[in-house]
């Protein structure tokens, strides 16, 4: 009921969309007046969200600092120019370069894609096993997964960092690993450690998708001569594509937005968008930060989120039209 419930609740339904129009009448739950009052109330409640996001975007295009979206300001691309030129903190004497920006975005992307890859590669086969295979301890393990998900992450991170410290020192001092190798190790560690946190929930999410495929389809493939592994790759994986898409999106977002692990594990010479924004605002740095440029960075950082909504939006509108829901 967790991840899948979340998705289903957001999107209405995850069943494959048929383009057939079957008229479904809406329930007249509330009168028009009540309905509009509710919409007005919702709008009022949503005001802080709308205001704050608008301000962020506006700020990234504004020539001066503004405190509310209504304030007069002149439109400019200067912040964006500064951002892409790497002049992230114009008032400070700090030197950045365009390659630094590229690096920042690339690092964020590496972590996000890495987390996505590890999560999809590990949770999908595990979910298949839990959904379709009988083995001793299946129930207990599934229960255990839920407990793991409920686990205080902060209790884990201490141990996770201790292992990191130990292995890092072994690499650096024992094996004399070079700087590049150590950096690669840091990335690898962040990715795998962060991805592991997603495994319990992701396994449950994917299990829900596997559960929905009729057993007969799987049996048919076995009778047709396929081994279990083949059934998994040739039949089941193609059939859970929507699930894989959902899992990929959510795990990508988890890696993309990660702040704590990135700040803790990655050296400061390997910044991500999260650690950049954090560095601009934390401690005393705020005295020298130029907020409109930070806003531009934040908007860049928001791009996957925006894509997510554009993508699901179109999916949803399509689904709504398909169901013949009147506009």
């Amino acid at each position: 009921m967790q991840g899948e419930g979340l998705l289903a609740g957001l999107l209405g339904s995850l069943k494959p969309r048929r383009r057939r129009r079957q008229p479904t009448e809406e329930l007249p739950l509330a009168s028009r007046a009540v309905s509009y009052t509710v919409i007005a109330a919702l709008l009022a409640a949503s005001l802080p969200i709308i205001l704050s996001y608008t301000l962020l975007v506006e700020l990234s295009f504004s020539a001066s600092f503004i405190a509310t979206p209504f304030e007069k300001t002149s439109f400019t691309l200067e912040n964006w120019r500064l951002f892409f030129q790497g002049r992230l903190a114009p008032t400070a004497a700090q030197i950045y370069t365009p390659s630094y920006i590229r690096r920042m975005i690339l690092d964020t992307l590496i972590v996000a894609l890495g987390v996505m890859g590890v999560v999809v590669a590990s949770a999908t086969p595990a979910a298949y096993a839990f959904s379709r295979m009988n083995f001793r301890g299946r129930g207990a393990l599934m229960r255990f997964l839920i407990l793991l998900h409920a686990f205080p992450g902060v209790a884990l991170i201490i141990g996770v960092y201790a292992i990191y410290v130990y292995t890092y020192r072994r690499l650096a001092l024992g094996l004399h690993a070079g700087e590049a190798a150590l950096l690669a190790y840091a990335f690898l560690y962040v990715i795998v450690a962060r991805a592991s946190l997603e495994i319990p929930m992701s396994t449950w999410l994917m299990k829900g998708f596997f559960d929905r495929i009729p057993w007969e389809v799987e049996w048919a493939a076995l009778v047709d001569g396929a081994s279990r592994l083949r059934v998994f790759t040739r039949i089941m994986l193609p059939l859970v594509k929507p699930g894989l898409a959902a899992l990929s999106i959510f795990s990508f977002m988890a890696g993309w937005e990660e702040l704590i692990y990135v700040v803790v594990f990655l050296p400061s010479k390997a910044p991500t968008l999260a650690s950049y924004i954090h560095s601009q605002l934390s401690g005393g740095a705020i005295e020298t930060a130029y907020l409109p440029v930070v806003a531009a960075a934040a908007v860049v950082y928001l791009i996957p989120t925006i894509l997510f909504f554009v993508f699901t939006q179109s999916l949803l509108v399509e689904a709504a039209e398909g169901a013949g829901v009147k506009a």
Partner: peptide
């Protein structure tokens, strides 16, 4: 769905 850093920045 908003990154923690951005959401923090908003507020």
């Amino acid at each position: 769905m908003t990154p923690v850093a951005v959401f923090g920045l908003l507020w």
